[in-house]
Design a protein around this nucleic acid. Structure first.
Lengths: 161, 161
DNA sequence: GAGATAATTGGCAGAATATATCTTTTTAAT
DNA sequence: ATTAAAAAGATATATTCTGCCAATTATCTC
């Protein structure tokens, strides 16, 4: 996607600032706020999309109201650190909709950190023991429950380097 | 916001499924996809917004292209577990734009897990030693660097309980 | 199950918005 | 200063949004 790195000026940064918080803002309102007319504003938004600076637009939904009362961070260790093991684990983990994030990390006993949404403890217990622990190569699993989300999904800063 | 829990039918769930992945979809297209005409479709979207089921719309931007090459998970332990200590920490941490997520967790030596975006190691070193470690009450800090994001920001599942 | 009531859908019209094209202005370089 | 290139602004057309009303569907009561 990024043919050329694309130099961002203050208009572009301002657009990114705004759409990170108001993804459905109209182009007219956006143009007003950044101080351009609608045409060049829309052109810039399209360019940011084409260059992959804007990856996608998403609605954030309230997991609680959908019945997902419990969030857990699960640290997973693998027996072997081979690409095959990791690929296989990733393929399996992708199939579990409750796993909303999967990171490969250093600095822990674990290899993966998963962010998991479940309805309750029973739900979690089942997922851990009967689904995740059964994936080949998983030797360890350590759970941290999230007591409170102080904040999540904050915008990426846009000031110059 | 949630006056009444709001019973969700298959149309509502379908809407949530779609807007979680295509936050800027037009109402007409959305209506087409869920199999309703635009009017009731828009009414449902508005109702989901009012009830707080849709919290907000957001553009996801590519942090890498903005110069944030490094993501870290930082586990913070506090000396005292008093509301004052925690409140004070949260107030300070909110002021740091590089911290894009802050969770209070169990199951670790730590009390907080922070998700941090920085440009490079120098940047991280400065943030850790000169900003975060200096917040009152912080006694421990353990860093995990993110080697790879297998996936992030996956949609919340919407099937019935 | 019939009838009444409430809730929800669909269609339509006017307003707002998006989008493509063209012209003008600004910027940069020689 | 002149030219070329890039970006902004204006305008017209097409699309989309949004509020209102009639028609349909679902629900409840007896």
């Amino acid at each position: 996607m990024p043919v050329t790195p694309l130099a961002l000026d203050r208009f572009d940064r301002h657009i990114l600032d705004i759409v990170q918080q108001e993804g459905r803002i109209s182009n007219q309102e956006l143009a007003d706020r950044i101080g351009l007319s609608p045409s060049p504003c829309l052109r810039r938004v399209r360019a940011l999309e084409e260059h992959g600076l804007i990856l996608q637009y998403r609605a954030e939904v309230d997991a609680r109201q959908l019945g997902y009362q419990l969030m857990a961070l699960l640290h997973i260790s693998m027996d072997q650190h081979t690409p095959e093991r990791f690929d296989n684990f990733e393929r399996h983990i992708r199939e579990i909709p409750n796993v909303i994030e999967c990171l490969i990390i250093t600095g822990q006993a674990a290899d993966f950190q998963l962010k998991i949404l479940v309805r309750d403890m029973d739900d979690y217990q089942h997922l851990l023991l009967h689904v995740i622990n059964r994936i080949e190569g998983v030797t360890g699993a350590h759970t941290s429950f999230v007591l409170r989300r102080v904040f999540e999904h904050r915008p990426v800063p846009t000031e110059r380097p």
